[in-house]
Design a protein around this nucleic acid. Structure first.
Length: 279
DNA sequence: ATGGCGTATGGAATACGA
């Protein structure tokens, strides 16, 4: 997580991603995060509320006036982009023909630049890592395959980020124990290969791993069920920031806010924040 | 130590997370 000084005249941009596990339950800590870290843009997953229930006023009160919402019918899933910079070309895509609110996209307008954002919540996949007996796992694999086929078209938009809870920890050092988790949904070879295919086929740079050496373990999620999550430290890196190569070359740092796991009534995921200096 | 927790809907008990 090195930092390179931005060149003179550069335009700063910071983008965060956070699986919030109910945005209404966590309005207090979301506000705290925005006020202390002050990212330009925050991509949320598992908002668990319909667009009419989204706490827009609370975000506007602290200067985040621009929002792209896809909460579907409320209840399950739900994604949103909250921004203090203007957003254009807001849209969302239904994957696997299911209509689940798992994707929202917008273009961030910053200092004459346009940066396209895709915010994803990939299906968790259930317990059994076998699509022939577990429809949830089959859905997850279908979703990843559709992402792999569709995302390359997103490159036509120029500088682009793909962020979100991708629900796969692709590398051995993205989990507390590769051996213990190799047959556990989120780290099976089938899922890891599918996510890697989506990344490689689109030419995306895994921005977190650009700043963290591959031999260093790094996580963004710790289960609620550990008595002492920090002591057990049985985490997984499920939340990702992918960038087009041009944008990746403008990245200064990626930070994982591990301390957010100890905030009051926390999410089981923590925020990941990417910082850029645009030319 | 794959659930010991947490949130959703609905108004108790069950679905889902990963």
């Amino acid at each position: 997580m090195t930092a390179v000084p931005p060149s003179a005249g550069a335009t700063a941009l910071s983008v965060a991603t956070w699986n919030i596990n109910s945005v209404r339950m966590r309005q207090g800590i979301v506000t705290r995060f925005l006020e202390t870290e002050a990212p330009d843009v925050l991509c949320l997953q598992e908002t668990k509320c319909g667009d009419g229930q989204f706490p827009t006023a609370a975000f506007r009160r602290i200067g985040y006036d621009h929002m792209a919402l896809n909460g579907g019918k409320g209840g399950w899933h739900g994604v949103a982009i909250v921004s203090r910079l203007p957003l254009a070309d807001i849209a969302n895509r239904s994957f696997c023909g299911k209509g689940d609110p798992r994707h929202v996209t917008a273009t961030v307008l910053v200092g004459g630049h346009r940066v396209r954002l895709h915010n994803f919540y990939v299906p968790a996949g259930g317990d059994e890592p076998d699509g022939t007996v577990n429809p949830k796992f089959a859905h997850k694999m279908d979703f990843l395959a559709e992402m792999a086929a569709w995302l390359p078209h997103a490159q036509a938009d120029g500088a682009t980020l793909v962020v979100g809870d991708l629900n796969v920890a692709p590398y051995e050092t993205d989990v507390w124990s590769h051996k213990a988790l190799i047959k556990v949904v989120s780290h099976t070879p089938e899922e890891c290969a599918a996510l890697e295919k989506a990344r490689i086929d689109g030419g995306w740079v895994d921005l977190t791993r650009r700043f963290v050496p591959m031999d260093e373990r790094i996580y963004t999620w710790w289960s609620y069920r550990a008595k002492d999550w920090r002591a057990a430290d049985k985490g997984r890196r499920l939340d990702h920031v992918w960038a087009t190569p041009d944008l990746a070359d403008r990245a200064l740092a990626v930070r994982i806010l591990k301390d957010a796991r100890d905030w009051p009534r926390p999410s089981d995921h923590v925020p990941v924040v990417a910082h850029f200096a645009l030319p």
